[in-house]
């Protein structure tokens, strides 16, 4: 019994660490790739670790109230918490965690928990830019959640389960990844992912020159550092979720890295060649093609 708990804890720690390290490297890689696309050398791939250490080593002489202090913690809950309910590998030793205790609808909600907490933290700083950034972010969320949910509903209808592990298993049983079984759902979800990752053209939330980085404009040092790490974990979470839902999961870490990184490249490269949408343009974008694909996906799941 006691051993179980230790094993569980160990699993949690290893998963989190894995997510953190992978996420950080992905972010480093994204900077590197962006630089290469722009014909630059770019920072080393471990640059984000250095940034993180530096940020954690910086003083935080001031805060604007306890909600600001807790804001990044909410973000972490959402990132680490979601990770706990997603099967990282198909049949891993440590990485099942609490997959059986949650399901995908629950995840949808847990994933916005962080944004709301973070928004509260940003709100308390009193910087108008933070609040403006938050409103943009939330508005954009209303946009991309719809195709994303449509894709998920399509999957649920197709596999008659809401449990992610079972969706995975269903894919294995049929031998077809759901991105081929229901391509429309995958397209809708992928287009929604552009908004979810907040690369351009959907990066108006923290537009540096206009909003002074928006919600985080008052947060330096440990706040920014914690947020960065949570972003890293969260990016990994989203990628693993996509891989699980649409690409049949991964049997080992190498496969996982290949699949997630491949997926990660899509919003990244799409963003590199795109300018920035205004918020309402972004929302309209999501209610255009992505939603149409979502509808087709649902109809496809129902009638096919």
């Amino acid at each position: 019994m006691m051993g179980d708990i230790w094993m569980t804890l160990l699993g949690v720690l290893v998963t989190t660490l894995l997510a953190f390290v992978t996420g950080m490297f992905y972010m480093g890689a994204s900077r590197k790739i962006t630089a290469r696309v722009q014909n630059r050398v770019g920072p080393p791939i471990y640059q984000n670790f250095l940034d993180l250490i530096k940020l954690q080593a910086k003083d935080t002489a001031i805060h604007h109230g306890w909600m600001q202090l807790l804001g990044p913690a909410f973000l972490m809950v959402s990132a680490v918490g979601s990770l706990m309910f997603i099967p990282v590998l198909n049949k891993g030793l440590f990485f099942e965690n609490f997959t059986a205790d949650g399901d995908i609808i629950f995840l949808l909600y847990l994933m916005v928990f962080g944004s709301l907490g973070m928004a509260l933290g940003a709100g308390q700083t009193g910087n108008p830019n933070s609040a403006i950034g938050v409103t943009r972010g939330l508005t954009q969320m209303v946009g991309f959640e719809i195709p994303w949910v449509m894709a998920i509903v399509a999957l649920i209808l197709q596999y008659h389960t809401t449990n992610i592990a079972e969706i995975l298993e269903a894919q294995h049983r049929s031998g077809v990844w759901s991105m081929f079984a229901n391509p429309y759902a995958f397209i809708a979800a992928l287009l929604a992912a552009f908004g979810m990752f907040r690369y351009s053209p959907f990066d108006i939330v923290g537009a540096p020159a206009e909003l002074a980085s928006g919600p985080v404009s008052e947060n330096g040092g440990k706040f920014l550092g914690t947020m960065m790490s949570s972003h890293a974990v969260f990016a990994f979470v989203k990628l693993v979720l996509y891989v699980d839902l649409f690409m049949g999961g991964a049997d080992n870490l190498v496969e996982l890295v290949i699949k997630t990184f491949g997926l990660y490249l899509i919003p990244l490269t799409y963003g590199m060649v795109n300018p920035r949408y205004r918020t309402e343009q972004a929302v309209r974008y999501f209610y255009g093609w992505p939603t149409l694909f979502g509808i087709i996906a649902i109809l496809y799941a129902v009638f096919y």
């Binding site: 002489a61 001031i62 805060h63 604007h64 009193g126």
Partner: peptide, 8 residues
């Protein structure tokens, strides 16, 4: 080292 400052 951390202390509260007003939101102004």
């Amino acid at each position: 080292g951390t202390r509260y400052v007003t939101t102004k």
